[in-house]
């Protein structure tokens, strides 16, 4: 598929935080890379803090299901992470063949967001899963499912942060493109800086002959935003890369469980 915004995407970068692996972000990244015909780069990020902990003499972990406490050591941690990385690599290879996209994967140790930002180029789309901020991550969705249909990720609106800056316009353009391609509604989360006329103008630029709608919510109107998140769900949140740290969504952020696309 020739994506309307393909020329503004050089590469799709997805940072997979191990052990808080993200199926949704990965599947969405693959889908997008396929749409843009852009190469996909997966970063399997081993949490450096976990590695350090495992070397401490009193390191122990609690089992997620039973609460049993057991020793944690570097060897067992490495084995578990390697196994995860192997599975991910296999899955990516399969997807590469299936979708005819170029895929690469790198295992790095560090902080997920930091590494993603460091390795991203200016025209990359960066996927960082919200799971890094959750306690239970994707536990409910299980491990990777080869051949998983990413379209299930795209049955909710795509949200975009817009405040009138050039960076957020790019985010809006990407969100609009995703909406057009996957027939998703777009919810514009407007910051205080964005004025109504500008927003209306941006809306009018969006193709109108499709059966999707564009809703505008003010970030300050938390009640409406929370209600919309709960009622409509969220396929992805598109925002400029540097805004990931700039904006603290508070309660909204905690309930918006979706991958984030950093542009």
């Amino acid at each position: 598929m020739n994506h309307p915004t393909a020329r503004m995407v050089e590469r799709v970068l997805v940072a997979i935080n191990s052990p808080l692996r993200s199926d949704d972000a990965l599947a969405a990244a693959v889908e997008l890379a396929s749409s843009f015909q852009a190469p996909l780069m997966a970063l399997f990020v081993e949490d450096v803090n976990l590695a350090r902990l495992s070397e401490l003499p009193f390191a122990k972990e609690l089992d997620r299901s039973s609460g049993v406490i057991r020793p944690l050591n570097p060897q067992s941690l490495d084995r578990a992470l390697e196994a995860e990385a192997r599975k991910l690599r296999k899955w990516l290879q399969d997807e590469s063949k299936r979708r005819r996209i170029s895929v690469s994967m790198q295992v790095v140790r560090g902080h997920c967001v930091g590494i993603a930002e460091r390795m991203a180029r200016s025209r990359d789309i960066v996927f960082v899963d919200y799971a890094v901020r959750r306690y239970f991550g994707n536990i409910a969705t299980g491990s990777f499912l080869p051949g998983q249909d990413a379209s299930r990720l795209w049955d909710k609106p795509v949200w975009v942060l817009y405040d009138g800056t050039k960076r957020t316009r790019r985010a809006l353009a990407l969100a609009s493109s995703l909406g057009q391609t996957y027939r998703l509604d777009v919810v514009i989360l407007a910051g205080e800086e964005a004025d109504d006329n500008d927003i209306e103008e941006q809306k009018s630029k969006m193709p109108s002959n499709r059966k999707w709608e564009c809703q505008v919510l003010r970030l300050s109107d938390q009640k409406s935003v929370i209600a919309a998140v709960r009622n409509r769900g969220c396929a992805a949140l598109v925002l400029p890369r540097e805004y990931e740290h700039k904006h603290d969504f508070g309660l909204i952020g905690s309930i918006m469980r979706c991958p984030r696309i950093l542009v």
Binding site: P19, N49, L50, L53, L56, K60, E61, L62, R64, A80
Partner: peptide, 13 residues
């Protein structure tokens, strides 16, 4: 720090 491990949780100073 409250950390996630492959199969659970851990605490690290």
């Amino acid at each position: 720090r409250f950390l996630h491990t492959p199969s659970g949780f851990a605490f690290a100073p």
